[in-house]
């Protein structure tokens, strides 16, 4: 009721940003290596792949679905780009454009199967994750291929502009574009509407199938971009690259306040979520914790974020537990 009567609520992004600042304060207190330009740049660099993926992935949960194929798509994109450039000797720009087109095609297939054949997105993209990984293995022979050429391509990942790595610019640019698309365009409104209530949206003139297909295309496209950046950054094309990244992307998006039930989402939130996960892992590194703690931390963070998003206060849960014990004894 309070939120019903209250005036404009403080956007959730501010709250998240506050938590991020607290996290930074905490980390800077426990380690004097934390608050340095080098360290912060490193963290941003390490989260930029997740950030790039999240910017497009977010449309799948917003429209009420999910895209689990983003990790495999990224790995395959790196391999395809390398084959086009180095096996077929294509101009690197043409090769990258073709790779992007390939990503769009895969997203379109995911969208068509989900909407027109009405297969749940979870299954469709799980299948895509599997066959894309298989394709990546097939094309690369399962080898870790080192990419030595062409130089302009390698500059994407490791180059710097004004002292800041180029991938961070790409992440920032995609986040801004995605934010504007979601908040300020017809497509963004329609995505939210379809996720909130497909039937109501349809009766209000929205084409739910078309909106969903676009959502998977966008998700696949940013995964492809992330794959290209990753191949350039690691100078490597490998089917196991980015394996499991879909979970990191889901973590970032969910921590950022996007509902997995559809109908709400925040690109800024997802970006903050990605950075937060990066800081937590960075903190564990600075404290010299074994790497096994990273997945444990990620798992706990995603659970806590989901609990917070559900809006059930832990107090109520505990109260119910305790009252159950007493209610049995007291008959009316």
């Amino acid at each position: 009721m309070k939120s019903l009567l209250g005036s404009r609520k403080l956007p959730q992004e501010f709250r998240l940003f506050g938590i991020l600042l607290l996290l930074m304060l905490f980390l800077s207190l426990i380690s004097n290596r934390f608050l340095t330009v080098d360290n912060l740049t490193n963290v941003l660099w390490s989260v930029c792949l997740i950030g790039i993926m999240s910017a497009g992935f977010i449309y799948s949960p917003i429209t009420g679905g999910i895209d689990l194929s983003v990790g495999s798509m990224a790995a395959l994109a790196g391999i395809v780009a390398n084959v086009l450039m180095n096996t077929y000797g294509m101009n690197w720009i043409v090769a990258l454009l073709l790779t992007l087109a390939f990503g769009i095609l895969i997203g379109w297939i995911n969208g068509i199967v989900t909407t027109k054949f009405m297969v749940p997105a979870f299954i469709v993209t799980m299948a895509a994750k599997t066959y894309l990984f298989g394709l990546a293995m097939l094309i690369s022979n399962g080898d870790q291929i080192t990419i030595m050429e062409p130089k302009p391509f390698l500059a994407i990942g490791v180059g710097k502009f004004l002292g800041i790595p180029i991938p961070i610019y790409i992440m920032a640019l995609l986040a801004v574009v995605s934010h504007i698309l979601l908040r300020h365009t017809v497509f963004g409104r329609q995505s939210i509407a379809v996720g909130a209530n497909e039937v109501a949206a349809k009766l209000s003139g929205v084409n739910p199938d078309r909106t969903r297909i676009y959502a998977y295309v966008i998700s696949s496209l940013t995964a492809t971009i992330a794959g290209i950046v990753m191949a350039s950054l690691t100078q490597q094309a490998y089917a196991m690259n980015a394996s499991g990244y879909e979970l990191d992307v889901i973590t970032a998006v969910v921590v950022g306040g996007t509902s997995l039930m559809g109908g709400s989402g925040s690109v800024a939130g997802a970006l903050i979520g990605a950075i937060m996960v990066g800081f937590i892992n960075n903190g564990l590194n600075l404290l010299d914790m074994p790497s096994a703690f990273h997945p444990i931390a990620t798992g706990i963070v995603i659970l806590l974020a989901l609990i917070m998003n559900q809006g059930v206060s832990p107090l109520t849960v505990f109260r119910k537990w305790f009252s159950r014990g007493t209610a049995v004894g007291t008959a009316k």
Binding site: I192, A196, N197, V199, A201, G205, M261, G263
Partner: peptide
């Protein structure tokens, strides 16, 4: 089931057919 989008604001609901 068919009319409202409960998780969206009044403005969001009103805006959709008027985009």
């Amino acid at each position: 089931l068919q009319g409202i989008m409960g998780a969206i604001s009044i403005t969001g609901n009103i805006g959709i057919p008027n985009l």
